[in-house]
């Protein structure tokens, strides 16, 4: 392991889903992830932010090895993901943990907690039941679950949402991962529990020096739980920057409208309408030419944005944005 080299690198990553009619006639492709480049360092926490259908969940599944990339590659710790087979692939799966959105759905309802936490260990060849039990108890302590004995023999539906999500996190930690991918880990939980779970993830990430990639649609929670943000729109990353930089100085018009749509809680919110771009995210089957946000963009430059895809600009130090507005010819 060489320190400083990224843990995970995605280059020119595409994940398309073919649409077929009658089971064989190809009628098109849903371009869920459409040319994404990024690198995640060891021990950093990043957030992928975007609306539903922007490809963030497909990206997560591609990184988890659940979808095969159509084009491009994912390199994890120097190994290319698509070349991994058999044992090497199992090893990779053990090194990437997964925390899902719906904690209840993520736990098999017919297994008690002990059984379902045993599963990953059994699959990864931990034969000794006592060793398994010991590892399970250790992670349950790590996710701050109390009354472990009682919880181990319960079924998922007997636990509260917060407890369920802790079990999901515990399961993701069981195999000693180097990275955790959390897909909207708190969006189904109550407001009072959300912060607790996010804090827990953040603390575990720091203690274990994990790479944490969490996917969310909620910009307001991001500041305290991520180091960097990637903003996705229609299958692409349109802007990326460290968290404070991005939230305080958004550069891409899409990020700007996302931030304009949410405001800190205030009684005056009820008095004014928010600035919302019209229209809806484009179909991933047939994305618009040029910049994908141009049909909704209030600052779109006719003849440029609707024709040519914007390259990556760096309007500020360490802050990247794919938007023609940063092109010097147009001024910024």
């Amino acid at each position: 392991m060489t320190a400083g080299s990224p843990l995970l690198q995605a280059s020119n990553l595409h994940t398309w889903f073919e649409l077929r009619q009658w089971g064989f006639l190809r009628v098109g492709s849903v371009r869920a992830v459409d040319g994404v480049n990024f690198a995640l360092a060891r021990g950093e926490s990043v957030a992928f932010v975007g609306e539903s259908g922007c490809g963030k969940s497909s990206l997560a599944r591609t990184l988890l090895g659940l979808h095969r990339p159509t084009r491009g590659e994912v390199t994890f710790d120097g190994e290319e993901l698509s070349t991994l087979k058999g044992k090497a692939r199992q090893r990779y799966l053990a090194r990437v943990g997964y925390v899902q959105q719906d904690p209840f759905g993520a736990l098999p309802p017919f297994m008690d907690v002990r059984r379902l936490l045993n599963e990953p260990l059994i699959i990864h060849g931990v034969r000794d039941p006592a060793a398994r039990e010991e590892r399970i108890r250790r992670v349950l302590e790590e996710v701050r679950l109390t009354r472990v004995d009682e919880i181990l023999s319960k079924f998922p539906h007997m636990l509260s949402g917060g407890q369920q999500q802790r079990i999901v996190i515990a399961r993701a930690l069981l195999l000693e991962p180097a990275m955790i991918i959390a897909d909207e880990p708190v969006s189904m939980l109550d407001a009072s529990v959300r912060v607790e779970i996010l804090n827990l993830l953040r603390n575990i990430q720091r203690e274990r020096e994990l790479t944490l990639a969490f996917i969310t649609h909620d910009l307001s929670t991001v500041r305290h739980f991520a180091d960097r943000i990637f903003v996705m729109y229609a299958g692409r990353i349109v802007e990326q920057a460290p968290v404070d930089e991005l939230l305080d100085h958004p550069q891409h018009p899409y990020t700007q409208s996302l931030l304009a749509a949410i405001a800190d809680v205030d009684a005056d919110n009820a008095l004014e309408e928010r600035d919302v771009p019209g229209g809806e995210p484009p179909s991933l089957l047939n994305p618009p030419p040029g910049c994908r946000f141009h049909p909704r963009c209030p600052k779109a430059i006719a003849g440029t944005c609707d024709v040519r895809e914007p390259p990556r600009f760096a309007p500020r130090e360490g802050h990247y944005s794919d938007c023609w507005l940063h092109d010097e010819r147009h001024g910024s």
Partner: peptide, 9 residues
């Protein structure tokens, strides 16, 4: 939960 099972191999 099936997706999770696939993700842990």
């Amino acid at each position: 939960y099936i997706e999770a099972a696939r993700a842990y191999g």
